[in-house]
Each structure stands twice: as structure tokens, then as C-alpha cells.
Computed example of a mutant assay.
Amino acid sequence: MTTPSMYEFLVPTANRMLGNLSSLLDKAAAYAEAKKFDPANLMTARLAPDMHPFTRQVQIACDQAKGAAARLSGAEPPSYPDVETTIPELKARIAKTLEYVNSVDPAAFAGSEDRTVTLKSPKGELQFSGIDYLRGFMLPNFYFHITMAYALLRHNGVEIGKFDYLGRP
């Protein structure tokens, strides 16, 4: 049995989870329409005053996916301004992110397990091997922000469940 490549760990995961997130946005829009309230109310939702709002959760999930695709393939991550405030704008960001992630040549990921990945953070630089970055930093962050987006919608009454988060196999 062969070990899956870094591409195989990242790209199908990004497609599935960001696709599911886009579907969650559809359900949020339908819920707001059915209940006759402005879906903008969902875009600013938070579970605590010091956490990022819903829109930022989606933006960060997208940033994690496109950043990993770029860094692990030896490219510079594309920069997207964080200007989305509506469901259609967030869905467009997800689509743009997936377009980028899927455009990266799988061959560019060759050897990325050992590629050095350096991230800048407010506390200084973080340095990882490619495999440690993907397994120990990117994927946990990616899932965290998608989970927070799911939790914020669920907390605000959107009728979603576990299979909306996971998607159907």
C-alpha cells in the first residue's frame, strides 16, 4: 500500500470541506428567507465577544486551504482582501479558493513533506517541515474555522446537522 501524497491529503479535503461550507451557506440563506430576517444578522454572529465573526471564520478557512496549496507547492499564497459581508460574496470566495487549490499541479507537491514552511505570526516566525505544517497546523486550523462557522449557524437556528458538516460520502 502506498502512502497518500501531500496533494491527496490537502486537495480532496479542501474540496469536500469548503464545498460543504458553501452548502451550509445555502442553508443559512434559505433559513433567513423562511424566517423572514436579514441574513446579514448571521454574518456578524459570534459565540463570544473576543472571537472572530462568522464572515471571518469562512475567510480564514479559505486562507488556510489556499495558503497550504501554495506553500506546499513552493509558491507564494495569493492574497484575497477580506471584504466579504454577504452570503453570495462568501460563496464566491469559497469558489475562488477552490479554483486556485485545484489549479495547482499535483506534481508541484512532490517532496513537500520535507519542504520548510515559514509563517509569520504576531508572536514571531513559525517554522515547520511540510508534513508537520499540514498535519499539525494547517488541517487543525482549517477544521477549526469550518467547525466554528457550522457552530455559529447552528447556534443561530439554522437547521443543519452533522452530515451537513461532513457531507455525504
Rank of each mutant, 00 (worst) to 15 (best):
K96T: 14
K96W: 00
T97C: 08
T97Y: 01
T97W: 01
L98N: 01
E99L: 09
E99N: 11
Y100Q: 04
V101I: 05
N102C: 11
S103N: 06
S103W: 07
S103V: 09
S103P: 00
V104T: 04
V104L: 10
V104I: 15
D105Y: 03
A107Q: 12
A107R: 07
A107C: 08
A108C: 11
A108F: 09
A108Q: 13
A108D: 12
A108T: 11
F109I: 08
A110N: 12
A110W: 05
A110L: 11
G111I: 10
S112R: 12
S112P: 08
S112C: 09
E113D: 14
E113H: 13
D114A: 15
D114K: 15
R115L: 11
R115F: 06
R115V: 08
R115T: 07
V117W: 00
V117Q: 01
V117G: 02
V117Y: 02
L119A: 12
L119I: 14
L119T: 07
L119N: 08
L119Y: 06
K120F: 03
K120M: 07
K120L: 07
K120N: 10
S121K: 01
P122K: 04
P122E: 00
P122A: 01
G124Y: 08
G124M: 03
G124N: 07
G124V: 03
G124F: 07
L126R: 03
L126Q: 09
L126V: 02
Q127C: 14
